[in-house]
Protein backbone atom coordinates (compact mmCIF):
# COMPACT_ATOMS: atom_id res chain seq x y z
CA UNK A 1 0.00 0.00 0.00
CA UNK A 2 0.94 3.63 -0.39
CA UNK A 3 1.63 5.52 2.79
CA UNK A 4 1.73 9.28 3.09
CA UNK A 5 4.38 10.34 5.57
CA UNK A 6 4.58 13.82 7.08
CA UNK A 7 7.72 15.13 8.74
CA UNK A 8 7.91 17.90 11.33
CA UNK A 9 10.63 20.16 12.76
CA UNK A 10 14.16 18.81 12.64
CA UNK A 11 12.95 15.57 11.02
CA UNK A 12 11.73 17.50 7.95
CA UNK A 13 15.14 19.16 7.73
CA UNK A 14 16.80 15.76 7.73
CA UNK A 15 14.50 14.23 5.11
CA UNK A 16 14.53 17.52 3.16
CA UNK A 17 10.84 17.16 2.56
CA UNK A 18 7.75 17.83 4.66
CA UNK A 19 5.82 15.04 3.06
CA UNK A 20 6.26 12.01 0.81
CA UNK A 21 4.46 8.92 -0.41
CA UNK A 22 6.09 5.52 0.07
CA UNK A 23 5.06 2.12 -1.15
CA UNK A 24 5.25 -0.23 1.82
CA UNK A 25 4.18 -3.80 2.52
CA UNK A 26 5.08 -4.21 6.21
CA UNK A 27 2.68 -4.93 9.03
CA UNK A 28 3.74 -2.92 12.07
CA UNK A 29 4.83 0.65 12.63
CA UNK A 30 8.38 -0.30 13.67
CA UNK A 31 8.94 -1.99 10.30
CA UNK A 32 8.06 1.24 8.55
CA UNK A 33 10.46 3.09 10.87
CA UNK A 34 13.20 0.57 10.02
CA UNK A 35 12.55 1.25 6.33
CA UNK A 36 12.84 4.98 6.97
CA UNK A 37 16.10 4.38 8.89
CA UNK A 38 17.51 2.70 5.79
CA UNK A 39 16.41 5.61 3.63
CA UNK A 40 17.60 8.30 6.08
CA UNK A 41 20.44 6.90 8.16
CA UNK A 42 20.65 9.97 10.44
CA UNK A 43 17.01 9.53 11.42
CA UNK A 44 18.19 6.90 13.87
CA UNK A 45 19.81 9.57 16.03
CA UNK A 46 16.59 11.62 16.23
CA UNK A 47 13.95 11.60 18.90
CA UNK A 48 10.40 11.36 17.53
CA UNK A 49 7.02 9.75 18.02
CA UNK A 50 4.69 8.32 15.40
CA UNK A 51 1.12 9.28 14.66
CA UNK A 52 -1.08 7.11 12.47
CA UNK A 53 -4.23 8.69 11.05
CA UNK A 54 -3.77 11.66 13.45
CA UNK A 55 -3.41 9.44 16.52
CA UNK A 56 -0.22 8.85 18.49
CA UNK A 57 0.73 5.16 18.35
CA UNK A 58 3.45 2.89 19.71
CA UNK A 59 6.09 1.19 17.56
CA UNK A 60 4.34 -2.18 17.98
CA UNK A 61 1.06 -0.92 16.55
CA UNK A 62 -0.32 -2.56 13.45
CA UNK A 63 -0.21 -0.36 10.38
CA UNK A 64 -3.80 0.30 9.48
CA UNK A 65 -3.74 3.80 8.06
CA UNK A 66 -2.28 5.60 5.11
CA UNK A 67 -1.42 8.70 7.05
CA UNK A 68 1.76 8.65 9.13
CA UNK A 69 3.47 11.58 10.87
CA UNK A 70 6.88 11.76 12.55
CA UNK A 71 6.71 14.19 15.46
CA UNK A 72 9.84 15.42 17.24
CA UNK A 73 9.68 17.32 20.54
CA UNK A 74 10.39 21.08 20.38
CA UNK A 75 12.47 22.83 23.03
CA UNK A 76 11.97 26.49 22.17
CA UNK A 77 9.86 29.08 23.91
Amino acid sequence: MYINIKYFGQIAELTQTKEENLEFSGIIVSELVETLYLKYSNLRTKNFQIAQNQELVSMETELTGNDIALLPPFAGG
Partner: peptide, 29 residues
Amino acid sequence: GAIYKFEGQVSIFNYKNGPSYRCIFPHPP
Protein backbone atom coordinates in the same frame (compact mmCIF):
# COMPACT_ATOMS: atom_id res chain seq x y z
CA GLY B 1 3.44 25.42 24.07
CA ALA B 2 6.77 24.86 22.31
CA ILE B 3 8.36 26.21 19.15
CA TYR B 4 11.03 25.35 16.59
CA LYS B 5 11.96 27.84 13.85
CA PHE B 6 8.62 28.15 11.98
CA GLU B 7 6.65 25.44 13.78
CA GLY B 8 4.84 25.19 17.07
CA GLN B 9 3.06 22.67 19.29
CA VAL B 10 0.21 23.42 21.73
CA SER B 11 -1.64 21.16 24.14
CA ILE B 12 -3.33 20.96 27.53
CA PHE B 13 -1.89 18.36 29.88
CA ASN B 14 -3.01 16.85 33.15
CA TYR B 15 -6.53 18.22 32.73
CA LYS B 16 -9.34 16.10 34.19
CA ASN B 17 -7.36 12.86 33.99
CA GLY B 18 -6.04 13.62 30.52
CA PRO B 19 -2.53 12.78 29.25
CA SER B 20 0.69 14.55 30.24
CA TYR B 21 3.69 15.60 28.16
CA ARG B 22 5.41 12.34 29.15
CA CYS B 23 2.51 10.41 27.56
CA ILE B 24 3.80 11.75 24.21
CA PHE B 25 7.53 11.96 24.88
CA PRO B 26 8.27 9.72 27.89
CA HIS B 27 11.86 10.88 28.41
CA PRO B 28 13.78 14.07 27.70
CA PRO B 29 15.99 13.88 24.61
